Computed example of a mutant assay.
Amino acid sequence: MSFVAVKLLKLGYSQAKKQSAKKQQHQQFQDPAAAGYPPYPQPYPPYQPYPMGEYPPGVAPGTNMSYPPENDPKPSKGSKVISMIMSALRFFQFVFGLAVIGLYGQDVQHDHDSKNTWHAKWLFALIVGFLATTTAAIHMIVPFCMRRVNYNPSPALRLPQFTWEFVLCVLWLTLFGIFGRMYIGVHPSTSSSKRDSDSSTSDLGDASKINRMRHAVWVDLVNLAFWFITASWVLLRWLKARRPAGPVGVDAEKEGA
């Protein structure tokens, strides 16, 4: 009997030891900080109801809320059309600037070949045409080269740009006034018997020069119109950039008032 009792005591002791080991292992799994391990992060925090006072006015739980879309980097259809129009204007500014250089450059080249003194008025016309042509070429080349890097000029550069284009407008207006006063209403004489007509046109050049200068005057006027349009557009963009944005969340009734 004593042998059976010893066996039962050993069996009970081993079972108790196993149960205590399982219990200790279970406690270590539930409380890893006690075992020396960092606590596991909880994937989801316990649910807490959203306070009603934090909801926006006029919005209840379950209401579909729409938020304004973020700034879309892609240009809109209207901006693309305006960009195409401005590119066309820059191209015409470039072409008509070259036309002015060609029309007035013939007389300067003739004076150079004849070893005569260059006239200041014709030199002034060449300078204006060169400045306008160079400016238009820059406005065409820079956006084309910067298209791949999404180049967007700073609004701070629009004021100097407007100032320069305004200067070009003044130069074109001056050029039109100088040669318009000289050649508008003047026609080359067709008869050698008209002494008054010969004397009035002899200082302005021969018939071909007078006809060429009469056309050049109207080309100057077209250039003035082109540069006035682009200068006005740059000014409007600068004023729009300076205007502060309206407050967010304004009611439609307040905006219409």
Rank of each mutant, 00 (worst) to 15 (best):
D206S: 09
I82F: 15
M146P: 00
F124A: 13
P41W: 04
D220P: 01
K23P: 01
H215D: 04
P247H: 05
N152T: 15
V250I: 08
A252T: 11
L236F: 12
V234Y: 07
P41N: 04
L171V: 02
Y47A: 10
F3K: 07
K194P: 00
E54C: 06
E255Q: 11
K23A: 15
K209N: 03
G97N: 05
L98W: 10
P61D: 07
P43N: 02
W218H: 09
Y55E: 05
F130L: 07
Q161N: 13
G129W: 02
D31K: 10
V108M: 04
K22D: 12
E165A: 03
G105L: 08
T133S: 15
S83H: 12
Y40T: 11
E54T: 14
L204W: 03
N150T: 08
P57C: 00
K209P: 01
A207P: 04
A16E: 12
S193T: 11
P57D: 09
L9M: 13
K18L: 12
M86R: 14
L171Q: 09
I138V: 14
G36K: 05
H215G: 04
S208N: 15
W238D: 00
K22E: 15
R158H: 07
S14Q: 14
V4P: 00
A216K: 01
G105P: 07
G205A: 08
R214P: 01
L89E: 10
A136M: 05
P188R: 06
N116P: 00
L168F: 05
K80F: 08
W233F: 11
S154Q: 04
I141H: 11
R148K: 14
F92I: 00
Y151M: 06
R147A: 15
N152F: 08
N64A: 10
T63A: 13
H110D: 15
N150M: 06
H139E: 13
S192Y: 13
F92R: 14
Y104S: 03
K254R: 09
L204V: 00
T201W: 10
L204M: 02
P69F: 10
L239W: 12
P46S: 13
L239I: 09
V100N: 03
A120R: 08
S191R: 14
D220K: 01
L98M: 13
S154M: 02
V149A: 10
G180R: 04
L221Y: 10
P188D: 05
R237V: 00
R242C: 13
K7N: 07
